[in-house]
Design a protein around this nucleic acid. Structure first.
Lengths: 155, 155
DNA sequence: GGCAAGTATCTCGCTGAGCGAGGTAATAAT
DNA sequence: ATTATTACCTCGCTCAGCGAGATACTTGCC
């Protein structure tokens, strides 16, 4: 056991555990924030996805949203119903392809996203500011490499 | 809007978005793996928590587990019932304080954890191996700083 | 010792998120 | 014109998690 732990340290396992712990904490913080604002973790994740898409200039639809969150169509409809009921979202028929529904996020949703991520982002930026440019580059390369690893694994 | 994006880049916002994307992907991968093995995301998180505690030499109890996962006692009991039914876990009365129940993880749980995290860990270690020692140190410092930021924010 | 307060877990009943199956309306293909 | 496909929604159901409260044990105080 002690031998195993020593081997772990040498190989960089401490960093792996650290990473996992951070993700767990982020998850928990998200769940708490969601509950505090009368919504569910999934609702918050949906909001993130929608705001991301908006920032990237992409149109969101129920289908795409469901795919991104790993929900089936029934669950997606229910989710959008909830968000619409809360006034965070509007359904708008696409005039080009009238089968489709476009999802327009309300300013309120943006404000809500800000109130959750704002402080966290500020802290993260402050933390980042304590790193040299080459260190930041290393962190950036690590994160994007990790993202790829996760996606490829979960094929 | 374009101006805002430019400001984002300069300030390191790209790294913030990258980070969030990684956590989202990890979440999704976890949910998929859980579903594939007939358990729920919470069950997987519980397993992680239990294995972590075991590795750290700490005894797990329903109360502690529930706290870590943000569940109330009823939900925690149901969770443990599920895991016990799957044979991943055993309840054992503590002989010292007979109000308490100790949670013993089965080897099967460990194997399950390995089958999910093993490949991911291998990839992560391989990725880490491409960094210099000082770069790894930067990543480590960033992650642990981030962990603190998250926890302090969610007070 | 004996009684009150506190702690750890469990039971009961309920709400509601998400699933599977199937339906409707619009577009695309032959 | 008919059939297939796409995009979304409805219906009925299952079960994770919650609030309230019960139970069993321990600890503190007189």
């Amino acid at each position: 056991m002690a031998k195993q732990q020593a081997a772990d340290e040498a190989a960089g396992m401490d960093l792996v555990h650290l990473l996992r712990e951070v993700t767990v904490r982020l998850d928990l913080a998200g769940a708490r924030f969601a509950g505090r604002n009368g919504l569910h973790p999934t609702d918050l994740r949906a909001l993130i996805s929608l705001l991301d898409a908006a920032r990237a200039g992409e149109q969101s639809t129920p289908g795409r949203l469901g795919d991104r969150l790993g929900l089936n169509s029934a669950g997606t409809t229910a989710l959008i119903d909830r968000l619409e009921r809360l006034g965070l979202l509007r359904r708008v028929r696409d005039t080009r392809d009238r089968r489709r529904v476009l999802l327009e996020v309300d300013d309120r949703a943006l404000a809500l996203g800000q109130s959750f991520f704002g402080p966290l982002i500020d802290r993260t930026l402050a933390l980042l500011a304590t790193f040299e440019a080459d260190e930041q580059a290393a962190i950036r390369r690590f994160l994007s490499g990790l993202g790829e690893a996760v996606t490829e694994e979960g094929a």
